[in-house]
């Protein structure tokens, strides 16, 4: 579970830079998000969302090193369109059940 923290410490130049997320917009494709962030994701995975089995969902996981605290950021896509992004626990407190389920599933992505 702590693998990505250790990886981020070792590869600190490969973490999200502060402010890069301000350029993101809902609806962007996965490729466009990679391009804006200027990095490949630490982990990327297709996921199943139990309350919405019809649409295709995937998540990208990045890490940031803000003020020397390493955090896990999740970017969720529905049919290759950016749906929501934030820290893992921000998905869990969201009012949408779909976003809660994405957060819950992405917690298992290493």
């Amino acid at each position: 579970m702590l693998k990505w923290i250790l990886a981020a410490i070792v590869l600190s130049s490969c973490t999200l830079s502060p402010g890069s997320q301000n350029l993101l917009r809902k609806g962007m494709s996965q490729a466009a998000v990679h391009s804006v962030l200027g990095l490949e994701a630490f982990a990327s995975s297709k996921i199943e969302v139990p309350s919405d089995p019809i649409n295709r969902y995937s998540v990208d996981v990045y890490v940031s090193d803000e003020d020397a605290i390493i955090k896990k950021h999740v970017f969720a896509f529905r049919n290759d369109s950016l749906l929501y992004w934030g820290l893992q626990h921000e998905f869990m407190r969201h009012p949408s059940q779909i976003i809660n389920e994405i957060g819950s599933t992405s917690a298992r992505i290493q």
Partner: peptide
């Protein structure tokens, strides 16, 4: 220098275990 940062970062993982 990373040891204390690691300890603080690890604290944030606790937030990931919260569920509504």
């Amino acid at each position: 220098p990373f040891v204390s940062d690691y300890a603080t970062s690890k604290k944030y993982l606790v937030l990931d275990s919260l569920r509504k």
